[in-house]
Structure formats: structure tokens, C-alpha cells
Amino acid sequence: MKILYEKCPNATSGLITAFLVFSFFAAWSQNNSGTVRKFENKEDNSKCFKCHFNNNYTVTSPDSSKIITRKMYMDLQIDSNVYYHSNHRYFKCIDCHSDEYFTYPHNNDLRFEDISTCLDCHGGDPKFEKFNFEKITEDFKYNVHSEKHNSTFSCWSCHDPHTYTTHARTDKNILEVVAYDNNLCLQCHANKRNYRLIIDKDNPNLVQKHDWLPNQALHFKNVRCIECHTKKSDTLLVSHHVMEKKDAVRACVECHSRNSLLMATLYKYQSKEEISRNGFLNSIILNRSYVIGANRNYYLNMISLAILYMVISGIIIHALLRVKAYKRYHGK
């Protein structure tokens, strides 16, 4: 650089300018590549959101021309702001629902409309292969929710297609992932009304049920319900086999140990990324949280062992030399 500067003093400033211009266009093109896709569905969808965004709607009786206002059921309310940030944001409502919904008031027979399942769109599609929807569907068959509430429980019971976003397969803050995923469970398990929509009894008090768990609040904030309540899966990033209560993990060492369960569940995505980068296991937990027993730093272990061996051997050598010196000065 020094030689270049001496030969051509304007070269370095030129290079810097070129670099800045290049960086600007690179950043501009990157920023724009993410937002260039337009919401072409907005105009059509706005007809639906006109009513389904609100708490109530008005309908005109075809016989008497009387206009009445009705409550919109909570399950039928869709927040368009949330929808346009969800995974399915580019879809038109009628991509999944019948276009007959454009007729208003809706035809009563539409309530018998078949609702698509995840596999209907995602099954067999190489683009979604990494999500392994087939295995998720298989897991779901053994899911306690599926077994106990067969007819009413579906993918949509937890993953509202109008709001769902991918959280686990990202580099998002783990606490955000935990909060999002736990909220999926809590929307029924901590909500008496929603719980009763699925089963005819009151929801149990989760705090009381988990009173055996030390530092309960810390656990609830830092790990997901599914860490203990699902069967560990080797093929899925997020196991969908929710087990019966009696099978839930209760042994602390499942997580608080070298082969921490968390590495195969909550930190699975990050640990895979980490291993592919530098092969340093469990450091991902160490960087983001602290789990006693699971966090063992190789170098700290080695240093502490070295100090320990040095101290023990130092004491033994010193003691032997003392004995030798004692014999020399005091005789045998």
C-alpha cells in the first residue's frame, strides 16, 4: 500500500471510494432483494379483512333487509398486520379457502369446507424437505394431543396458519424462540377458555404442577415446555411427539450433564451450525446461557487439572524432601 501510495497518491483514495460505492450497491441490492416481492394479494385479502380483522361485523338479512351487527368469533378474527409478517403472508385467503367466500353473506354450506393440512401443500415438495413434514405428521399420530382429542386437534390448533412464523430454524435470540414456542402451549394450557374448547375440564395450574422444579421461573424463561414433554427426535429439529405427563423428563441430569438433552432440542439448530463451523460442542449453550453440568469448557478443565496435578505433586515432592532432610539432620 505504501509503494502504491508513493507511485500514485490518488490510488488509495480511489480504492476506498470504489470500495464504499461497491459496499453501498451490495447493501442496497441485498436490502432490496428481501423486500422486492410485492404483496399482490392485498387487494383481494382486504375484502376478507374488512370483517375478519374486527371484533364484529354487519350483515343484511336477505329477507327483511334488516342490518344487524354480530360478534366475530375470536377464532375467525385475523390481524392483518400479524398475517403480513407470517410465513404465509404472500397467500391470498382464497388460496386455502373457497373463492365462494367472496359471496357475502357467506353460504352456510361453506362451513363444511375441507381445511388443508400441512402435508397438502408441503408434503413431497423438495423445497420443504429439510422441515420433514412427513415425519412431523408421523410424530403427530403418537402425540398425546392427537390421541386424546383426535377429532378436534390438528396442526392448526397450535400453529395458526395466519400468524405462524419460523422461529426454531433461525439465529434468533434463544429467549425469543423459547417465549414464542411456550406461548403455543400456554395459549391453551394457561387459558381456561381455550382449554375448555378442547377438553371438558379446567386447565391444571402449571405453576403448582411444576412446583418440584428448582428455580421454576428461570426454567420457564430459558427452556421450552417441549424440551421435557416431547420425545427426543433424531430426524426432526422440533419433535412433535408430545408425550403423556407421566413420561415427561424429570431427571435433572438429562439437561444438566455433558450430553445435555438441550443440545438435541432447544440448541439443536445452533449446535449443528456451531459444529459445522468449528466443532466445539456445548459452547453454544455457554455463549447464550449457562446450564450447570452442560457447560464444560475444555481449556478451563485442562488448566484446572494441570494446577491440581502440580499442587498435588508439589506437596508430595516437598514432603519427601522434608523426610529426607529430617533423617539427615536427626538421624534415622
Binding site: 428448582p214 435433572c252 441430569v253 438429562e254 444438566h256 450433564s257 455433558r258 450430553n259 450447570i292 453440568g293
Partner: peptide
């Protein structure tokens, strides 16, 4: 015992050690 807890060879049960 807590720092080196292991499912295969538990030194002292983790919750008891805590």
C-alpha cells in the same frame, strides 16, 4: 458432582446435590 453430573454415572443425584 453438579459440574460433572452425568446420566450414565450419577455421583450424587443432581437435585440432591443442588
Amino acid at each position: 458432582s453438579m459440574q460433572y453430573s452425568s446420566f450414565e454415572s450419577p455421583h450424587i443425584p443432581f437435585s440432591l446435590a443442588v
